[in-house]
Design a binder for these strands. Structure first.
Lengths: 150, 150
DNA sequence: TCTATATAAATGCAAATGCATCGATATGGA
DNA sequence: TCCATATCGATGCATTTGCATTTATATAGA
């Protein structure tokens, strides 16, 4: 049976996690907006597709990677396609589906976003914590992941 | 001048922070939905108002506490008022403003949400990390806060 | 083979959010 | 006092999200 009430330490850590993650996302989004660039979600998708390469990805494979609902992926890909950043090809082995590939305009956009986004991350993380502390933070967060890794 | 590019450690910690915080929020929101309860944002406001007590708060004071935009607070308070969970009184010393107070129905609702939310936090945090680890996590996150405390 | 069920992706509609602005009151000089 | 400016809160409008459903294809079992 699961505990009904969190410890003081859990409640405090939870509150910090909620507040800090939202603050940092907001900072990063603000920086993109100020630079006239699209939101973080666009970067996430472009990043996944860029890493995958020419083979592309099926839309349903993006759901877990970018933590969007199925309809969210469907609509985001629609916008990316409308902007010429990705292209959709029919999936040769599955008549229901498609393959989504990043275009060269998409790669350019990814790089442009990274220029701003990466600088935000540096300012928000590297300026606040040492490399060792960042590793410790990543390790602790890793243990909260779902599903559990170990 | 601010660094243009984040360290590997910063990028990793950032990615974990983004992913884990979203996963955990989603879990907690799902639990509330399944219980037929309103979203976390409602809890945040009810919690602030409950802690403040009979004096209530001005809407603009909620902006920083719950990390919502001004119009977000305005509309959320509208919904809470429509549900009888808060009441708005004219601010005696400022003709532009109001005082928002939690009602007893609001206190009840806060307790009901906490029953589910607290259990989620316990399951997501206490079951994964020890009290010492939770304290370490909170401390590291605290250093990322904006604005910096020290 | 035929049928029932499952999966992939899109979409209509309602609700929520973001952006800009507005109306009202307050405040700080000239 | 009067005016320019700032602040408080609400809201019209466009965009985005959430939910439920739809269409199309695939798969498993009788």
């Amino acid at each position: 049976m699961t505990k009904a009430s969190p410890s003081h330490q859990a409640a405090t850590a939870w509150a910090r996690l909620m507040r800090v993650s939202r603050q940092l996302v907001e900072k990063a989004e603000d920086a993109l907006k100020e630079a006239g660039l699209p939101p973080l979600a666009w970067y996430d998708v472009l990043h996944e597709l860029a890493e995958t390469g020419e083979g592309g990805l099926r839309p349903f494979e993006l759901i877990d990677r970018v933590l969007l609902a199925q309809y969210g992926v469907s609509r985001l890909l629609g916008r990316l396609e409308a902007d010429g950043l990705v292209e959709k090809l029919p999936a040769s082995d599955d008549g229901r589906g498609q393959i989504v590939r990043i275009t060269s305009a998409g790669r350019d956009m990814r790089r442009r976003i990274w220029g701003v986004y990466g600088a935000s991350i540096a300012g928000l993380m590297d300026e606040k914590l040492s490399a060792e502390e960042l590793e410790a933070l990543a390790a602790l967060l890793g243990r909260l992941r779902h599903p559990p890794i170990g």
